[in-house]
């Protein structure tokens, strides 16, 4: 059913008055791929997702599914979780999920079965007859996730799906995401929890000021960003490593110095320089975390993205 679904965002631009929210935004998500979408607040993640769902219209560019522009019919196959959570507060959980499933084109019978299956899976099956507003916030989040999945979508677009979830729900959510991808669905999700993104995603895109500034596997981004070496040389003076060939930056963390080397640079000259300052108690390469990669990417451009009012809305 989902074989071959590719989600492509191609050259999408969007302005709000004088604010350029998206500038030639583009990336594609292959079948069975989990794509992590990270960026500061106001960078354009939510705007991109809203455009994918047709909730907002792009000024230019195109969103394609299976190589065809996304129309109403294709859009029904997308499961969406908006950043601003929302359900009908005075409607019962079961009735609400069935309604949303039917709006996405399921028959009444399929909608009922799917509602039962997902509420069972997400642990809210006992609350089918309760109004949403009577549920705890955690359970409302689970219903929200069920609302994104109840029509058995072939594509997932989830805006901050982990925010506000308890650890158990985070595990369920991660499991569901992996499972949908294993079934061949492309999935995009945005998150500020970069450790989660690093752990879950096949590929990551970093957004800044409405454009994708880095894209690839975490390992690939890491390779491009150079290597961090942690040196424990207590007698070294600040700035001792700056003149060593291959060093990009160095900073002190307590007694230790963290030195970033150019991609592919030899670390032995650094070791010699360290030994020249006195005793060396430690010298180790450190895997760059996504958080550090993200910080580097954003720090390259000091003009931090201002939060546009539309993004906050």
């Amino acid at each position: 059913m989902v074989d071959g679904s590719v989600l492509e965002i191609d050259g999408v631009s969007k302005r709000y008055g004088d604010v350029r929210a998206l500038v030639d935004m583009g990336f594609s998500v292959r079948p069975g791929e989990l794509f992590g979408f990270v960026g500061a607040n106001g960078a354009g993640k939510t705007t991109t997702m809203r455009i994918v769902l047709g909730v907002l219209a792009a000024d230019s560019g195109e969103v394609r599914l299976d190589g065809r522009p996304v129309d109403a019919e294709r859009r029904r196959r997308i499961g969406y979780m908006p950043e601003e959570r929302g359900l009908y507060p005075r409607m019962a959980v079961g009735e609400q999920l069935r309604y949303l499933a039917e709006l996405h084109g399921l028959s009444a019978g399929d909608a009922r079965r799917s509602t039962e299956r997902w509420t069972e899976r997400l642990g809210v099956a006992g609350r089918l007859g309760d109004e949403v507003q009577k549920l705890s916030l955690g359970n409302q989040q689970r219903v929200q996730l069920a609302a994104a999945l109840v029509h058995e979508p072939d594509v997932l677009v989830l805006d901050e799906p982990f925010s506000g979830l308890d650890p158990v729900a985070v595990d369920v959510m991660s499991e569901v995401l992996r499972e949908r991808c294993a079934a061949g669905a492309p999935a995009v999700f945005s998150s500020h929890q970069l450790d989660l993104v690093e752990r879950l995603c096949d590929r990551v895109g970093i957004v800044r000021d409405g454009a994708l500034v880095a894209e690839g596997t975490v390992d690939g981004l890491r390779a491009g960003a150079g290597t961090d070496v942690v040196v424990d040389a207590p007698q070294a003076r600040p700035g001792w490593a700056d003149a060593v060939p291959g060093v990009v930056t160095s900073r002190t963390e307590g007694e230790r110095t963290v030195v970033t080397l150019e991609p592919g640079a030899d670390d032995q000259p650094l070791l010699h320089a360290a030994l020249a300052t006195g005793p060396v108690h430690g010298f180790s390469r450190r895997r760059t975390t996504l958080t550090e990669l993200f910080r580097h990417t954003v720090a390259d451009h000091p003009e931090a993205a201002p939060e546009s009012p539309e993004e906050a809305a």
């Binding site: 769902l53 047709g54 859009r75 997308i78 908006p82 009908y88 709006l103």
Partner: peptide, 11 residues
């Protein structure tokens, strides 16, 4: 209740 965004994603 912001549910309108969810509904307008398909309607």
């Amino acid at each position: 209740s912001r549910v309108v965004e969810l509904v307008l994603a398909t309607v």
